[in-house]
């Protein structure tokens, strides 16, 4: 075992750093673990891995297409590559390599995609990643996971060991991601976790929106409204059972994600419910526009990715009864 005891401190409330800490643990567990960087050594906190397992680290430089292609080639030889990259670049620029070399050829490549959503708010639309879930989710064979906090990011990264196929792990940036999941309840790929009970409305959230959903639920409870909160970290495969149960039991679904309203969590839930159990929905996320430049939280708020907006959506559904 590695000296993983202090990983929480080193992850500093950021999922991107928890990923790097989990790689250190995976490196110790499995000699086939190899880390591929696209000039992202600090972004994903992998310097401890590099120090400890230098012979299993490959720096590719600022070349995302090459990073994915090389990772696919490594995987064919039996290695277990983890590609560390910026979400906006690895999902869009190297999308063809992800589709052909990784998804179509079904290679066990794990992509750690940091700085997703509008975590690089001040960097502008060129650096926002608001379509990556739609892109990655559309490929057969892909598993798509959005951890809500460092506990889940760490567990999900370890869990990739048992996923027989490619994985896209969507990670945050430098914005604090409060802990909302219970480390004692283990992450399971394809399983959504209920964080707050309630039968009046259900909020299905992923990533940074989960803590806002929890806050919303706690606020609503004071007003006598029981809002179930479900952390849907596994976008693909989707936990149909838990989501359908929420639709049947609450009859009102709000989805919340830091992603375009096209093709992400809300889209996935709507695809399921419209066929299996049509349910009134509201969707929180980025509308069909490129986001403004600015600090992440302010940009989120501008486009309705806030606890206040989630609460409004819940109340609208309740008023529509």
């Amino acid at each position: 075992m590695s000296d993983s005891g202090n990983w929480r401190e080193r992850a500093a409330t950021q999922t991107r750093l928890a990923f790097g800490q989990a790689l250190l643990e995976l490196g110790a567990r499995d000699p086939r673990t190899v880390v591929v960087s696209a000039d992202t050594q600090d972004l994903l906190g992998i310097r401890p891995f590099i120090e400890r397992f230098r012979e299993r680290f490959i720096e590719m430089g600022i070349a995302e297409q090459n990073a994915i292609g090389v990772a696919a080639g490594l995987a064919t030889t039996g290695m277990r590559p983890y590609v560390c990259a910026y979400a906006p670049f690895i999902s869009a620029r190297s999308m063809e390599q992800v589709r052909n070399d990784v998804a179509y050829a079904r290679q066990r490549v794990v992509i750690g995609a940091a700085a997703s959503g509008i975590s690089l708010g001040v960097a502008g639309g060129t650096h926002h990643s608001l379509e990556d879930l739609a892109l990655m989710r559309s490929f057969p064979n892909m598993t798509v996971i959005v951890p809500a906090d460092i506990e889940e990011a760490y567990q999900a990264t370890l869990a990739t060991q048992d996923i027989d196929g490619p994985v896209y792990l969507r990670l945050g940036g430098r914005v604090e991601e409060p802990t909302v999941t219970d480390p004692a309840v283990p992450f399971r790929c394809g399983k959504a976790r209920v964080l707050r009970p309630g039968n009046d409305v259900a909020i299905l959230a992923c990533g940074a929106m989960v803590s806002l959903a929890v806050q919303t639920s706690d606020d609503l409870r004071a007003a006598g409204i029981d809002a179930r909160v479900i952390n849907v970290s596994s976008i693909k495969p989707l936990d149909r059972e838990t989501i359908l149960a929420a639709a049947v039991e609450t009859r009102r679904i709000v989805t919340a994600e830091e992603h375009h309203l096209t093709g992400g969590l809300g889209g996935a839930v709507a695809e399921l419910l419209s066929v299996e159990h049509p349910t009134r929905m509201r969707m929180i996320g980025m509308p069909d526009a490129f986001a403004s430049i600015g600090p992440t939280v302010k940009v989120r708020e501008k486009y309705g990715m806030s606890a206040a907006a989630i609460e409004r959506a819940c109340r609208e559904l309740l008023d529509a009864r």
Binding site: I68, G73, T77, G78, D101, Y104
Partner: peptide, 25 residues
């Protein structure tokens, strides 16, 4: 067949990964 190719510009990166995999193992 070692890899699905034909979308052009993919093979050299894949082969580079294979060569790195050989060295590591």
């Amino acid at each position: 067949i070692e890899m699905c190719t034909g979308a052009l510009g993919h093979g050299l990166a894949i082969a580079t990964g294979m060569a790195l995999g050989a060295r590591m193992q």
